[in-house]
């Protein structure tokens, strides 16, 4: 079973050279720590920055330079800054190659819910609805099961939706799965030490799994 860093590390293997990538808040942010050697990616932050650099050193933080998670960051050689409308312009016009974001639920037809728990959590969708509606390629980083052992990979989402029929790949603490165009989760890889049976038991949505599913390789 993977921890949050393990999920991030596995997703990082999906990065390809010269990709423009938008990382959501939470586990997706950790992906930046595992960018494979020799792979050059440009990180977009939807508050208006391309070429997001690492966190600043203590004492060098600039209140005017933050990412979409409101964390202090730095720029890099080749960075550019722009306004919010332009930022979502490049998202909508599919200039971003890969979007990585978190989810509370994903359904077997690629619907995603990650912004609202009615009566409980009222934070808002931020840029997530824009990102999932327009992205060429989305990978979801999420927990496969909640603390009670209940599946979050469902036949149909129960929470208010962020987007419909848009998710193609999910990486969880248990597995890497594709969502098939005709519907259903296709098990591609198991997390270290996790059995196909356990993944079957932990997936409420339709699951397609071969008998021999390889264990994922992280390095």
């Amino acid at each position: 079973m993977l921890d949050k860093n393990g999920i991030a590390q596995r997703i990082a293997k999906e990065l390809k050279n010269n990709y423009y990538v938008n990382l959501g808040i939470g586990i997706p942010t950790l992906v930046a720590n595992y960018i494979p050697k020799g792979v050059n990616v440009v990180l977009q932050s939807e508050n208006g920055l391309l070429g997001m650099g690492p966190f600043p050193f203590e004492g060098e933080e600039d209140a005017d330079l933050i990412n979409a998670g409101k964390q202090t960051i730095t720029t890099l050689a080749g960075s550019s800054v722009f306004d919010s409308a332009l930022s979502f312009g490049m998202i909508r016009s599919q200039k971003i190659d890969l979007t990585i974001l978190g989810a509370m639920e994903v359904s077997e037809n690629g619907d995603i819910a990650n912004w609202k728990i009615p009566g409980k959590m009222v934070k808002g969708m931020g840029g997530a609805m824009d990102l999932v509606a327009s992205a060429k390629n989305i990978i979801v980083a999420m927990q496969h099961i909640n603390k009670a052992g209940e599946s979050k990979l469902l036949p149909k989402c129960t929470l208010p939706l962020t987007g419909v029929n848009c998710i193609k790949k999910v990486v969880t603490e248990l597995a890497v799965l594709d969502i098939l165009p005709e519907g259903g989760f296709k098990l591609l890889e198991r997390a270290p030490g996790v059995s196909v049976d356990f993944i079957k038991k932990s997936t409420l949505g339709k699951l397609f799994a071969d008998d021999n599913v390889p264990e994922m390789i992280l390095d």
Partner: peptide, 21 residues
């Protein structure tokens, strides 16, 4: 918000920016 004192309309960030634009 939960007590009903405040009305709120949550909209996607890109929609917000582009409606201004």
């Amino acid at each position: 918000l939960l007590s009903g004192e405040l009305e709120v309309e949550l909209i996607p960030q890109g929609t917000l920016a582009t409606r201004c634009m």
